Amino acid sequence: MQQLLKRLPGVSLAVLIAILAVYIENILPGHYIGATVIAMFLGILFRTVYYDENQLQEGVQYASKKILKGAIILLGASLNFSIILEVGSQTLLVLIFTLLTAFGGGYLLGKVFDINWKLSNMIAAGTAICGGSAIAALAPVIEAKDSDVSYAISSTFLFDVLMIVLYPIIGTLIGLSDTFFGYWAGTSINDTSSVVAASFAFSEVAGEVETMVKLTRTLAIIPTVLIFSTIYYRKKLKQPERRKAKVSLSGLIPWFIIIFVLMALLNSVGFISPEISGVMKTISRFLMVVALAAIGLKTNLSVFIRTGFKPFVHGFILSSLVVVVSYVVVLFIIG
């Protein structure tokens, strides 16, 4: 009970910020900015203005770690592998090229700009898959710093805002078809809310195509977290104090990722009804907003200043590469 009381102030603040973020998202025209991004920035703002570490830290820490893992588990209930059969091999081929570009380019750019591998790969995951959700899912697997999570989300978010405006204009100027635009936007714009806004601004048909493509793209979260879980575990085993440690499944794949994948499998075989899946997705989304609010509350602006603009340049160049590669691959494969 005493521990619960210690966590209550911090968790309550994160929940209140999350509620405010969802409200702001709903009143903003076009829903261009997702509640997760809004919550994170509100958290950073609140910390800058006022933050009592003794009162809030334990609850904020709990929300940014435990609640985030709960959100990831519930996210699995909204993922369905059967969507792959619906979209066909053409969509998968486009996605393979964009994923390879994002992670391959992210690795090289991380070396060029001398950015730590965790931050670099979170930017790549956000660019390759679905912005903040992918970054939030990857962060606990590689034990990323909260400041790096905030930086990764910020760098991908700024590019998304620009693309919401530019994509419909470019698509109209060069005379893209609705289907082409849907594939292009669905495989190259990062955050879900941003790609939906850009696609439906172009046309209803483009929005429908994009939705199917984006759902397939979101499934890439599963192999991504599994691969990086393995990579990070191997990195830890190379540390001098861990070299004699035995390989264990719990260390190789965190428990919450196992449940996350299991939830996706249960949903794919129809064990979870569409109604329950929808409810779990809604809860997951809100818990993700709460967790991002907490991560914002733990992020000090001085860390951003010390890190500099390199991660933003990294994210911008990487997102631009994905845009170009996506366009070329869609042109050759879809036509």
Rank of each mutant, 00 (worst) to 15 (best):
G278K: 12
G126R: 00
Y183A: 11
A144Y: 09
M40N: 05
I295D: 05
I305M: 13
S273A: 08
F157E: 04
S320R: 12
I129M: 11
K66T: 09
V325Y: 08
A14M: 05
A152W: 04
K6W: 14
A264D: 00
L99Q: 14
V313H: 14
F46D: 01
S193A: 12
G186P: 05
K214C: 02
F260K: 01
V269E: 04
L93V: 14
K145T: 09
M40L: 15
L75M: 12
E53V: 09
L318R: 04
I174N: 02
A201T: 13
A137V: 04
L226N: 03
F200A: 03
E53W: 09
L79P: 00
G10V: 04
I222E: 05
K69Q: 10
D160T: 14
F202W: 09
T216V: 08
F304C: 11
L331C: 14
S250E: 15
A185H: 01
T98P: 01
Y232M: 02
S203H: 08
S273K: 08
D148G: 02
L265M: 11
R243D: 00
F181H: 02
S319G: 15
I283R: 03
T282Y: 08
K69M: 09
S326W: 10
S120I: 10
A264K: 00
L176Q: 03
T230D: 11
L99C: 13
S188Q: 13
V330D: 08
I170H: 14
I231W: 02
Y23G: 07
V149Q: 05
S268I: 10
V324K: 06
L262C: 10
G308I: 12
L318I: 07
A294N: 01
W255L: 11
I189E: 04
Y183W: 14
L99P: 06
I17E: 00
V196K: 00
S155G: 12
F181G: 01
N190Q: 15
I305T: 13
P254S: 06
R234L: 05
G76S: 09
I334C: 13
K236M: 07
L119W: 03
E53M: 08
D146I: 01
E25Q: 01
T307M: 14
G132I: 10
L262F: 12
D148N: 11
L79C: 03
A206P: 03
P240L: 00
